[in-house]
């Protein structure tokens, strides 16, 4: 009975915390050989009625995950860590090449096209999982 209550709390607390938030078009760019960081891209859509604050990104096969923004100053580029991503109610945020990306660090095995990975993020305090597929980018978005 207590276990059921706990489960119920867990389920509904999570649903309330991150209601209406979805993770679409999630993909990981197949990296060139080496064990450098790998970029993942996705669209976060908030169809709920509350602001969604996302932080603490994780990936089962990666030592750690960060959210980075690529910042352009004249003809220079730089990656900046973004501790939090706020998605207002009714809004979508697109993580795409040249904009924002998830920086997946130190994969436990080579990341190759076709592989699937489980990722997760804390969405208003509730750990929310989503899946990503690796693809080889032939035509980059500039």
């Amino acid at each position: 009975m207590t276990r059921l209550t706990a489960l119920l709390l867990l389920c509904c607390g999570q649903a309330l915390a991150c209601e209406g938030v979805s993770f679409d078009n999630v993909w990981i760019r197949e990296p060139p050989p080496g064990n450098g960081p790998v970029a993942a891209y996705l669209t976060v859509k908030n169809a709920g009625t509350e602001m969604a604050v996302l932080k603490d990104w994780q990936g089962e096969a990666f030592a750690h995950v960060m959210l980075h923004a690529t910042k352009r100053v004249d003809d220079r580029v730089q990656m900046l860590n973004q501790p939090e991503l706020a998605v207002p109610a009714g809004a979508s945020v697109v993580l795409a090449p040249g904009g924002m990306h998830l920086m997946l660090m130190k994969a436990n095995a080579p990341v190759v096209a076709g592989k699937h990975y489980g990722l997760s993020v804390s969405c208003n305090g509730a750990s929310t999982p989503f899946d990503a597929t690796v693809r080889r980018e032939e035509a980059p978005t500039p």
Binding site: P32, G36, G98, M103
Partner: peptide, 10 residues
């Protein structure tokens, strides 16, 4: 540089 997974591969 290779630890640049966004701009450099593009």
């Amino acid at each position: 540089f290779t630890h640049c997974p966004d701009v450099c591969p593009s």
